[in-house]
């Protein structure tokens, strides 16, 4: 069993004016996973995050960081061990990119050379070549680049946990999607525990290993994206996911998840197949195929656009299975 790194036990946060920001919340975050807090604005998701690095103090309950109650830890040390990314305004505009990224190491009093090396390493990881970007100011960068600097800065002191508060919120949809993809790749390399706040359910489904859906200061469902899509806890969740829930499900599943591997074309390459293959995946132009890692949404689009009943699933040159419209229907939650 994987160990948990952050545990909330019956946590409540009430402001002096009597507003209850979050009420009696309990959940655990496993090490190395991404947990997304999602919900309408004012639902308590950002407060939850700020309780972790103690920008807000809880009213009752307990929060554990790596087994220790956070109130027993030094606030400043705790924060330096937790990376923090907020929307793009969070960068220090008066500092260069290198100064921004090197900030936490500077606070930790690393020596100059070590900071410089670390900054270069991170900028390269973020696809921002150090020699070009080190000495630029954030204002000279595009929205996407600024956000990457923000992530690099949070990673600088190699924290175990990263808090990300709507990190991609201020970006245009195309840049956002690109950064999400990049971030997923980076996450696969760095393997951090990430707490991620968003109001966008699509982003939550895409980024999260676990998702906590908030409503009025309470978590209404804490589950894997698949569970949330297929078994919404109540009407609120169902509504929050939206009327295009099936499409989201299609976008969430890959062709590999639903394909039929028993077809007799399996194991052959496309060229071996020649003209004598499965008829239902072929039209005037030839076979229609999807990569194993592509979403079922793409598969369905190809089926409709090509006026065929199904497509071949490939991995490189090799055919690994087939997906038909019937397979898709069977796998969607409504169909079960």
């Amino acid at each position: 069993m994987t160990s948990t790194i952050i545990d909330f036990e019956n946590v409540t946060k009430e402001y002096p004016d009597g507003t209850v920001a979050i009420e009696d919340i309990s959940f655990s975050v496993e090490e190395g996973t991404t947990t997304v807090f999602v919900g309408p604005s004012g639902c308590g998701k950002t407060t939850t995050m700020k309780l972790v690095n103690r920008l807000e103090e809880l009213t009752s309950g307990k929060i554990y960081y790596d087994g220790q109650e956070i109130r027993s830890l030094d606030k400043i040390d705790l924060r330096r061990n937790i990376g923090y990314v907020i929307q793009e305004i969070g960068l220090f505009d008066h500092m260069t990119v290198a100064e921004n990224v090197g900030m936490v190491p500077t606070l930790l009093e690393w020596d100059r050379a070590r900071i410089d090396d670390r900054v270069d390493e991170l900028l390269d990881l973020m696809d921002l070549p150090a020699e070009t970007y080190r000495d630029q100011h954030p204002m000279e960068l595009s929205g996407g680049q600024r956000q990457r600097v923000g992530v690099a800065r949070a990673l600088a002191a190699d924290p175990d946990v990263m808090l990300m508060d709507e990190p991609f919120g201020a970006l245009d949809p195309i840049t956002r999607e690109k950064l999400q993809d990049e971030f997923l790749e980076i996450q696969a390399q760095i393997d951090k525990t990430i707490l991620f706040v968003t109001h966008d359910i699509d982003e939550a489904l895409k980024m999260g290993d676990k998702i906590a859906i908030y409503r009025n200061g309470q978590i209404v469902q804490y589950d894997t994206p698949k569970e949330i899509l297929t078994n919404p806890a109540n009407d609120f969740v169902r509504e929050f996911i939206g009327s295009d829930r099936l499409i989201k499900e299609l976008k969430f599943m890959t062709a590999g998840d639903v394909m039929d591997e028993t077809a007799d074309v399996t194991g052959k390459t496309l060229s071996e197949l020649g003209a004598a293959g499965v008829e239902f995946a072929r039209n005037g132009q030839g076979y229609l195929t999807v990569e194993r890692s592509e979403t079922t949404h793409v598969a369905l689009m190809k089926i409709y656009e090509g006026h065929v009943e199904g497509v071949l699933v490939t991995e490189g040159e090799e055919v690994v299975g087939t997906v038909t419209e019937a397979d898709l229907k069977r796998n969607l939650s409504e169909g079960r």
Binding site: N53, L55, I76, R79, Y84, I86, G90, F92
Partner: peptide, 15 residues
Amino acid sequence: VADAQTEVGEGMGMT
């Protein structure tokens, strides 16, 4: 100075 800037400083562990 924008609140967000000071809060980010606080969040990254500045005294």
